[in-house]
Nucleic acid binder design. Structure first.
Length: 665
RNA sequence: UAACCUGUGGUGUAAUGGUAACACUCAAGAUUUUGAUUCUUGUAUUAUAGGUUCGAAUCCUAUCAGGUUAUCCA
């Protein structure tokens, strides 16, 4: 058994370090804390994968906590959808919890903070407070209410809770430092008045705690060891710690573990948007059919599109975890779903853009049922029968009257194999009045042992069943639709992101179930859509097969993107070789030396001279320069003062290799 | 012109002071009853410049570039 020692990401390194420093392994605890104000999308999957993945790795509990402190935006519908999606992804939470469960505890702590002079009621307008807040480059100023007495603060806060005041008239603020360079520390708001109905607490509360005052304290109450969130919360960490340290003082006997927040870079996918607000706009404006439209990057959209939980988990694993901003190429997601479906999806034949083929030497009334393998990647998948007859459909793309020999498909006079069936030869075509090909007349040959270049999929016309086929393209035409300050993301919407076709399928597909997945051979992976009914089948194209032929067609000449595969200049290679020179074993040094000498033939004196000033410490580089210089001299370069200086300096160096080279001149 | 964070092939992630590795993409080739799959091969001044060290992607300094932070949102 080879133990796979996978490299750790930076969060795992932190955890390992904490463990080494005495944190008991059974104290490890994580959480996933969505706000129930929208559907989960592929970006959330990263956060889910990190926290739940850590739970699996360390056998530690992971809580699902709904961060529901803003009753105006949150709804039960979203809670249900989020739970459904996490379950579908295959993760299990230890406890289903709500920040709103902690409202009373939070309130009690807030009262303590007031009593300790750490919080005060501010009765200014939000504009006035914003004014006093300052800017990132300018310190803020204190509120006139900052020094209210404890008694007054207590009284006001209790009356806020009792519902005596209108929204916006008072807030509770932490008393920290209006001059802190971190703006979040400038007396942040802990509570605001909101006369709104909460989806869980109803009308019990009319003051609601803010994120910063809720999140860390919820972590603390749940004794979360590592609170993981995305990078934009980094500035909140200082405040997270400030609040935490205070409540820790109040409750350390009961809750001994102070959690720590760490931040990772969120996931960005090329050609997609991740903001819930913007996704909501697509739904509301009818650009897509709903949150689960197969073009949406939501979990429910991906599910409907045919992505499997396994493929998404694989994707998240491959994406990794780090702290730098990233844009992951959608091709990685596509790779993951293809890899998964390649092993699991049964192959079938379907023609989406049909042209009729008549096999003239096949009897009119004959039909035979040929054996076809369901999945060559999975021996247990077995075989099925497909009907063959005199008239079949093939793809219009698969025939050309005339074509070069790079075209492996059917052409007049050419032979091609029909998958699972015979070899046919195109004899002539029948066209309509517009010159459009109506029928291709072929002859067939039952000798299937011969070698032909192409193999086509096909469907017997009289046995074919029709189905609606929905093909999707990316929703946006820009790689980073919301990455332009000057242009709105709605301007990049691809008007052709959905195409609907009628497909002709082999009859084995009559009674498929919603969600079932297939590979339509040579076309891609398809699944049965929710809208599908017996007799009125609907398929979604999940993803196409890799198609190197299409790529070749798209750019017939050379490579499409002539990558500036610029050859590095000889001088830069010499510099690089020199950098390592002194560390190399002797035999390698000889090899490198020869290489430098060779490269030096392409180097001009003008390129070399600036390197004479190389720092004394960089003996390797200077050796390389010296070797190159010698070659230049040998090639006829005249010596000058600069050269002599450089050589003399080398002779006096403490590096023996350099001295040896210098003396050898 | 603030504070904080981040710079490793086209993309993403490793290497925790000791030969820059893995995956995807792309390209070329082999195999193939899917132009798929599978298999081979190829692609890097570790942002730049100094410094510390026998040895630096890694530590220090400066510079450059990008990002984040000013909702009674989370």
């Amino acid at each position: 058994m080879s133990e796979e020692t996978k490299s750790l990401n930076f969060i795992e390194h932190i955890i390992e370090e904490d463990l080494e420093n005495g944190l008991a392994k059974d104290k490890l605890r994580f959480r996933f804390p969505p706000e129930p104000n929208g559907y989960l999308h592929i970006g959330h999957t990263k956060a889910i994968g990190i926290s739940f993945g850590l739970g699996e790795k360390y056998n530690a509990p992971v809580n699902l906590r709904f961060d529901d402190t803003n009753p105006i935006k949150e709804e039960q519908e979203y809670v249900d959808a989020i739970k459904r999606d996490i379950v579908w992804l295959g993760y299990r939470w230890e406890n289903e919890l709500y920040s709103s469960d902690y409202f009373q505890k939070l309130y009690d702590w807030a009262v303590k903070m007031i009593k300790d002079g750490k919080a005060y009621v501010d009765s200014q307008s939000s504009e006035a407070m914003a004014e006093q807040k300052g800017t990132p480059t300018q310190v803020g100023t204190n509120s006139p209410f900052r020094n209210r007495s404890v008694e007054e603060n207590l009284d006001l806060f209790q009356r806020m809770k009792a519902g005596e005041f209108e929204a916006g008239t008072h807030v509770l603020r932490a008393k920290i430092d209006m001059e802190d360079p971190n703006m979040l520390m400038r007396d942040p708001i802990m509570y605001r008045i909101l006369h709104a109905h909460h989806h869980r607490t109803g009308d019990e509360w009319c003051i609601y705690p803010m994120y910063d005052w809720t999140h860390g304290e919820s972590d603390y109450l749940e004794q979360i060891s590592h609170s993981l969130c995305s990078l934009e919360f980094k500035p909140h960490r200082k405040l997270y710690n400030w609040f935490r340290d205070h409540v820790y003082e109040y409750s350390k006997d009961k809750y001994p573990l102070p959690p720590k927040q760490r931040e990772f870079a969120r996931l960005n996918l090329s050609y997609t948007i991740m903001s819930k607000r913007k996704l909501l706009k697509l739904v509301e404006e009818g650009v897509v059919s709903g949150w689960d439209d197969p073009r949406m990057p939501t979990i429910s959209g991906l599910r409907r599109r045919g992505y499997t939980p396994n493929s998404i988990r694989q994707f998240i694993e491959k994406v990794g975890v780090a702290k730098r901003e990233n844009i992951i190429d959608v091709s990685l997601l596509e790779f993951c779903i293809r890899e998964d479906l390649n092993k699991s999806a049964n192959r079938v034949m379907a023609v989406l853009d049909p042209v009729k083929v008549v096999i003239t030497n096949y009897p009119e009334d004959k039909e035979e049922w040929l054996e076809a393998e369901n999945n060559p990647e999975d021996e247990s998948a077995g075989f099925r029968k497909v009907p063959f007859s005199r008239e079949i459909y093939i793809e219009r793309d698969d025939f050309k009257e005339e074509a070069g020999n790079k075209f492996f498909r059917l052409k007049l006079g050419g032979e091609v194999r029909l998958k699972n069936a015979f070899i046919i030869k195109a004899e002539n075509v029948v066209k309509d009045s517009n010159g459009e090909i109506k029928e291709i007349h072929c002859t067939y040959d039952t000798d299937t042992s011969k070698k032909v270049k192409g193999t086509l999929h096909w469907v017997s016309t009289k046995h074919a069943i029709k189905a609606e086929i929905r093909e999707y393209d990316r929703l946006f035409s820009d790689e980073a639709p919301d990455g332009h300050a000057d242009k709105d993301f709605m301007g990049f919407i691809n008007p052709n992101s959905l195409t609907i076709k009628t497909g002709y399928l082999e009859p084995s597909l009559v009674d498929v179930n919603v969600g079932e997945q297939f590979q339509f051979q040579r076309l891609g992976y398809f699944n049965v859509d929710n809208d599908s009914k017996p007799g009125a089948l609907v398929f979604n194209k999940t993803v196409g097969l890799r198609d190197s032929w299409a790529k070749q067609k798209a750019n017939p000449k050379t490579n499409s993107q002539p990558k500036p595969q610029q050859k590095r200049s000889a001088i830069s290679v010499i510099q690089q070789l020199g950098k390592k020179y002194t560390n190399l074993p002797e035999e390698k040094q000889l090899k490198v030396k020869a290489e430098i000498q060779e490269l030096a033939n392409d180097v001009s004196y003008e390129e070399l001279e600036p390197l004479f000033g190389t720092a004394l410490k960089k003996a390797g580089t200077r050796i390389a320069v010296l070797i190159a210089l010698k070659r230049l001299l040998k090639n006829g370069l005249e010596r000058n003062d600069a050269i002599d200086d450089f050589i003399n300096k080398a002779k006096d160096d403490k590096n023996e290799l350099l001295v040896a080279e210098a003396l050898d001149i």
